[in-house]
Amino acid sequence: MDKAESPWSSSQHAFGKGVLAAFKTILTYTLFATYLGVGALAHDLNFSPLWAILATALVWAAPAQMILLTALGSGGTAVQAAVAVSLSAIRLLPMVVALLPMLRGPNTKSWHLILPTHFVAVTVWVESMRLVPSVPRERRIAFVNGLGIGVLGATTVSTLVGYNLAAILPPLFGAAVLFLTPISFLLTTASNSRMLMDRLALALGIVFLPLATLLNTGVDMLIAGVAAGTIAYAVHRLRASR
């Protein structure tokens, strides 16, 4: 066997396969549409095009960007905006913790993990958790970097397109693209859940959030997410021990 025939023979190949994988998932296309909406919102609130694309590339989390846009655009204080953004971003922590050990090999330096860490948000995380197990370990970082560049590149383009189309987009379009987030997150997470634990965690997260909202703590997602995830994990352990 010629070594070059293997699709995983080099990091460049793995990176290329990652970029291709970005365009094979419906999540990239729904995110593309979502970011048309984010770009249009940035335009309507008088932020510059550079501001809008830097926000997409550097914040790289649609909910945080919408919070930031509406908080700053409506004249809220910087401190309030920063706190709201940060609360929405806590979810990134467990995603990074769950992914990095899958990417690390015996020769991996910590700095190799910096870029994959930045790419983690729901879309890249869900697709990485699904695809990485079938990638040879020494190519996983290159693969995730390709996936991240593919998804982030597409959404940076759509942020700019949405920004420039803002004036002609009908109001119903905004509602339709914003609705893509909940329905595509639900269906792709459901279809990628192999274990009962994952499905249970997803369902309990959906049910617990309104209950946590009643507590009026400001950290609804943290409380509901930890409670729902812990119960799903406990059920998984109980079933395994029987």
Binding site: F179, A228, Y233, H236
Partner: peptide, 30 residues
């Protein structure tokens, strides 16, 4: 890590519900 993955997945459920009950921007008009 199994527990961490369960919490991360549950938080995706929370994000879904958050958009439904506190809709951002134009979605609030629906």
């Amino acid at each position: 890590l199994v527990w961490v993955r369960a919490v991360a997945t549950a938080i995706i459920g929370c994000v879904i519900m958050q958009v439904l009950i506190v809709p951002p921007g134009a979605l609030a008009s629906v």
